[in-house]
Computed example of a mutant assay.
Amino acid sequence: MPSTALFMVTLGITLGTLTVTSANHWMTAWLGLELNMISILPVIAKQKHPRSTEAATKYFLTQATASALMLFASTINAWQTGSWNIMQLNNKLSCVLMIAALTMKMGAAPAHFWLPEVMQGATLATALLITTWQKIAPITLLYMISNHTEPIITLSIGLLSILVGGWGGFNQTQLRKMMAYSSIAHLGWTMTVISITPNIALMNIIIYMIMSAPFFMLLMTTASKTLQTTTTAWTHTPTTTIILMLLLLSMAGLPPLTGFTPKLLILDNLVTHKLTLTAATMALLSLLSLTFYLRTTYLLTSTASPTTTQSTTTWRLKPHQNQITAILTPMALFNITILPALLT
């Protein structure tokens, strides 16, 4: 991509998200989301391949539908209450429609159908952008209207997302699709608690972004796109393989890694609000996600010395130093020390 086009696309994506996060009016938020969507379409479709074009088309149609639904919900609210303020979404129908629109924007179940296909048709760098930066705007809007959301709706969406995210990633051999279902499952944990304790929901999605960013960057370094290519990573970069394994276990939520912290806090808050059955169901459903995380971890370490791999070693570029990965990886693995401060 030419430098001028890259600058314009980056500017559009950044300005679109910042417009939404600083908006106080529904029309301003809608404008920011549209700018964000239009800016990322060339990034998804930049590969000269039919799959990339298909992914960009699916992304556009889904996001346009969600934007139209969002505009419809805000218009109904303004018609009934006379206010376009984001914090004053008092109409119940508007609130339900807005949750549906933002659910589709993020890719949470049951409107998750587009996310695995779009991520599979995009590059690893674009998939990283979709799972992290592109979720900031809808999560911010959901956080701002959390006082008006119905807990039963968000809990249902959250439980369904955890189920779909775990079940969908079961038989995946493509790492991008597997991470798409992982994203759906983590969005489910966020949705379950967004109407009860929004701050913990926001912390959960931020920690997921911190965990997934170095994972995708290391996949780009090792040029791994499928589970088969990960089996040859140990002979090429053993240190990177160990870090990938730890990041997967962190995303699975195993203590004492970072991913355990938000899950423990979410379950604790659900039990505090007398939603013990919901908390137990979420903990059991998360075992589905744990299965494919452990499977990938096993494949990464099954060829460790002195075991030899049966797969053909693929051509890989020489690993390059990445300062962002070096900064984010410790945060994604070892910030369990902040747990006492969060509990108080």
Rank of each mutant, 00 (worst) to 15 (best):
Y298P: 00
I153V: 12
L333S: 04
L61C: 13
I157E: 02
L97R: 00
S161A: 13
I243W: 11
V271G: 00
A100G: 11
N36S: 14
A56H: 04
T62I: 06
P198Y: 01
I40K: 05
L342N: 08
S156W: 07
N269I: 04
A122K: 08
A252V: 05
P306V: 07
A66I: 02
P238G: 10
M179C: 07
T307S: 12
S195Y: 01
L128D: 07
F72G: 07
A66C: 14
T291R: 07
I324M: 15
L175V: 14
W114K: 05
S311H: 15
D268Y: 11
T297F: 13
T131I: 00
L227A: 07
V164P: 02
R51E: 13
S52P: 04
W84E: 05
T229E: 15
P255L: 03
F72D: 06
F216S: 08
I200Q: 00
S183V: 02
M203W: 09
V193P: 00
S286R: 04
I86L: 10
T276S: 13
I336T: 13
T337E: 09
N199A: 11
A29V: 07
S286F: 01
S212V: 15
S195P: 03
M179G: 04
A101K: 01
Q321G: 11
E54D: 08
E150Y: 11
A341D: 11
V20W: 11
M104V: 01
T28P: 03
I206C: 09
L41G: 05
T344F: 13
K225G: 15
E54N: 07
P198Q: 03
T230V: 15
M179H: 10
T62V: 10
T19R: 10
T65H: 02
T221C: 03
